[in-house]
Computed example of a mutant assay.
Amino acid sequence: MQSIRNGKTPSPSSTPGRGVSRKMGNIGITVMLIVFLVAVVFAANQNDVIGWLVVIVSLGWLCLATFVVFSVRGAARKATAKLADATAGLRPAGAPGVSVVDEGTIVRDRKLDHSFKIIQVQSKVIRENLDTDREMVDRALETIEITAHNARGMIKKEDGGPVEGTVVD
């Protein structure tokens, strides 16, 4: 299964392995055709019943291989067309029952989740050290300010870059 990156479906040319199966089918048909032709030549030279039986058997295998290769190719084309129709018929993102999320959104959401966890930890540090260690409280507040600024930057897509400072856990 392929992932959908940035809301775009992959192009058929980017699907790996399609050319290999086509080449293998062509090689199989070619080998069967050569076997059939060799059997015909030997049967014609020998002109006996066993040679012609070999020709008939090799012709049967050639027909079977040809049928299998072309039916699989046809089924693959039909499946590709149905898949293309199904994906073309999808409702736009945000419509009920359909959700398309690109990887950038997932990464941003994880970063925001991490930022909120940092803020929760630092607020706990502030509660524990409010009356005892003013320096620890100041560092925790600075960490909260930096984290909040960075999180807002992820949401707003600011180009100012992250605020720098010392982060204390």
Rank of each mutant, 00 (worst) to 15 (best):
T143A: 12
D159Y: 10
E128W: 05
V57D: 06
I34E: 13
W61T: 09
D113L: 14
T143W: 00
T66H: 02
K124A: 15
Q2F: 15
K111P: 02
G17Y: 04
G7P: 07
L33G: 04
E158Q: 14
A65I: 00
P16C: 08
M136V: 14
N47D: 09
M24T: 08
F67K: 08
I126R: 03
S11Y: 03
L59Q: 02
D85R: 12
R18N: 14
V41M: 00
E128P: 00
G161M: 01
V137E: 02
R22H: 13
G60S: 01
D133F: 10
L37Y: 10
D169P: 13
H149K: 15
V125S: 06
S115N: 13
A151F: 06
L62K: 03
V49K: 11
P162R: 12
V168E: 04
Q2N: 15
V69A: 06
N150P: 00
I50C: 13
T147A: 06
D48N: 15
V121P: 05
S71P: 01
P96Q: 07
V107L: 15
H149G: 07
R73C: 04
A148G: 05
R110H: 10
K117N: 12
V41T: 02
A140Q: 06
R139W: 05
D48V: 04
L112V: 11
V49P: 01
V72A: 06
D131E: 15
V57Y: 03
T147I: 02
S21N: 05
G165I: 00
T15M: 13
V125L: 06
D133T: 09
M32S: 00
L141M: 13
D48H: 08
T87M: 14
A140T: 05
A151V: 03
V101G: 05
L112G: 00
S3L: 11
E128A: 15
G161V: 05
S13V: 04
K157Y: 11
K111G: 14
L83W: 09
V167E: 09
K23E: 06
T143H: 07
S123P: 08
Q122N: 13
A95K: 07
E128N: 14
K157M: 13
N6S: 13
S99I: 12
L33D: 11
K157Q: 15
S58Y: 04
A75H: 08
R77P: 00
P12W: 03
L33P: 04
I118E: 07
D102P: 08
I4E: 10
A79C: 04
T147Q: 02
G104M: 06
E142I: 07
E164C: 05
L130Y: 07
I56F: 01
V35I: 12
Q122L: 00
M1D: 12
I27Y: 01
K157G: 13
P10Q: 03
Q122F: 08
G161S: 05
I155T: 10
P92T: 05
A84Y: 11
T166M: 09
I27C: 01
A39N: 03
V68A: 01
D48G: 02
V69K: 00
N45Q: 14
I118P: 05
V69N: 00
L33A: 15
L90T: 07
S115E: 09
V69R: 06
L64M: 12
V20C: 08
A88I: 00
R152S: 15
T87F: 14
T66S: 02
P92V: 10
V68D: 03
K157I: 11
V68G: 09
